Lab assay of single mutants.
Amino acid sequence: MDALKSAGRALIRSPSLAKQSWGGGGRHRKLPENWTDTRETLLEGMLFSLKYLGMTLVEQPKGEELSAAAIKRIVATAKASGKKLQKVTLKVSPRGIILTDNLTNQLIENVSIYRISYCTADKMHDKVFAYIAQSQHNQSLECHAFLCTKRKMAQAVTLTVAQAFKVAFEFWQVSKEEKEKRDKASQEGGDVLGARQDCTPPLKSLVATGNLLDLEETAKAPLSTVSANTTNMDEVPRPQALSGSSVVWELDDGLDEAFSRLAQSRTNPQVLDTGLTAQDMHYAQCLSPVDWDKPDSSGTEQDDLFSF
């Protein structure tokens, strides 16, 4: 819950932080000083300027060897085509990944977070970031790969997607708890209302004896509580940590079903599988986004697919 609360507080303090972009060759504004600060901008989305290598189908939802083989196929196909790589912007948030063309600003792909089953910074092609997700059109699994400016960037994108998945799962947990509370309150309110109706004398007997209905007592009954809980029953509950912020979080049926399955089948359902080692994760978390744009010590960066 700490990640969720800190993310909400950060967004309320400075929503404009989320509009910064990394990996864009110096076009961005001043960047936060450390990885923790940038992680807090996830709610509205972190932007990464990358190059799209392509996509291939895979048979399993996750796995280092599986993704490595898929990336190898994608890279080989991209090299064989001889075409310049498409420059894209990857927007990562707890909602998922939005992929747009840098030149036309046209939407290429919009992947809900619950469809993503794996992401990684490839070991062999260490400047490549990739994720595996279920197609929104059918049940097939797709591996999408992107060329980053350097290994640090690939690791940073991988960690960002993993963190977005974690925050999304926490949102789901909060929403589920809130819905259970509202359902319980609604049920209790309905029981109270039913009890009051059972003990209320029939209207005919009131008229016969000349008694008047006590409207004041009726007004004191917990009807307002019942209506408050039943009027918006169809509205999706939102985490309290975000009250007053500009973010509107809505959970669709697909996300609810997917996270429910994860909660039942996995020990740590909030953790998205990645190909990063503990050492890689520690190294990337210690980086400032400013470091992502620094040239690798191995030599001059080449803006070309064939540089790796």
Rank of each mutant, 00 (worst) to 15 (best):
V248S: 10
P269T: 03
A258M: 07
K72P: 01
S297Q: 10
M281Q: 05
L272I: 02
K72Q: 06
Q163L: 11
K150H: 03
T158N: 03
L103G: 13
V192Q: 07
R39K: 14
K72C: 13
A68K: 01
A7F: 12
P202S: 10
P289S: 03
K79E: 06
S298Y: 04
Q155F: 08
H125M: 00
Q139L: 10
L242R: 08
I12V: 15
D252C: 04
S16A: 08
A69N: 07
G244K: 03
S307C: 11
I113T: 03
E44M: 08
G25D: 15
L107S: 03
V271W: 03
K51N: 02
P94M: 12
G210R: 12
E109V: 06
E170Q: 03
R95L: 05
M153P: 01
A69C: 06
T274P: 03
A219W: 02
P239E: 07
K123S: 05
R13N: 14
D183C: 14
E257H: 04
T231F: 04
Q136D: 12
L255M: 08
P289H: 04
I71A: 01
T218R: 06
N138Y: 09
E142V: 15
D183F: 13
G210L: 01
G25T: 03
D183I: 10
C286E: 09
L99S: 15
A18N: 11
K123H: 07
S67M: 13
L262V: 04
V226T: 06
V271N: 12
L147V: 04
C148Q: 00
T100L: 07
F306Q: 15
L85T: 00
H28K: 15
S81V: 03
L17K: 14
K83W: 02
L42T: 15
L215S: 09
S246H: 02
G24C: 14
S243I: 10
V128K: 00
M281F: 05
P295Q: 07
K176N: 12
V75M: 01
A10C: 12
A80E: 14
T160N: 04
V161I: 06
D303R: 05
T225A: 06
L90C: 02
W249L: 11
S6H: 13
T38C: 11
T277V: 10
K30I: 13
S16D: 10
Y52W: 05
Y52V: 06
T36D: 14
T100A: 08
K181T: 14
I12M: 15
S297M: 07
P237E: 10
L99F: 12
K176E: 03
A10P: 14
G54F: 01
E188S: 06
G189N: 07
S243E: 09
A195T: 13
I74F: 00
K179H: 11
D37C: 11
L213G: 08
S246K: 06
T120W: 02
L276P: 07
E33Q: 13
V236W: 09
G8D: 09
K30Y: 09
L147W: 00
P269L: 03
G24V: 13
S246P: 10
V167K: 13
D183Y: 15
M153N: 14
C119Q: 04
L47F: 09
Q60Y: 14
W249I: 06
A10M: 01
L47Y: 02
S307E: 07
Q136Y: 11
Q106G: 05
R182H: 13
Q302V: 11
D37F: 03
N229G: 05
L276N: 05
W292D: 06
D2N: 03
Q197D: 03
Q264I: 07
P94T: 08
A185K: 06
A162T: 04
D291S: 11
G54T: 00
G190D: 03
F146H: 01
T41R: 04
D122K: 00
A18P: 10
T36M: 12
L57G: 10
D122H: 01
S81R: 11
F169P: 03
K181D: 12
L43H: 15
K87V: 11
R151F: 01
Y118E: 02
G24A: 14
S140Q: 10
W172V: 02
A76D: 05
D37A: 12
P94W: 04
S93A: 10
R29H: 14
V111F: 05
S246N: 14
M233D: 08
P289T: 09
R182A: 14
P239K: 04
H137E: 13
R151A: 15
T200R: 12
N138W: 04
R29L: 11
A10E: 15
S224E: 13
K79R: 05
L42C: 10
M233P: 12
W172D: 03
V88Y: 15
S175C: 05
T230I: 09
G299H: 05
T218M: 09
Q264K: 11
F259N: 02
L141Q: 06
E142F: 10
A162S: 13
L43Q: 14
Q285I: 06
R29F: 08
L4D: 03
A154D: 00
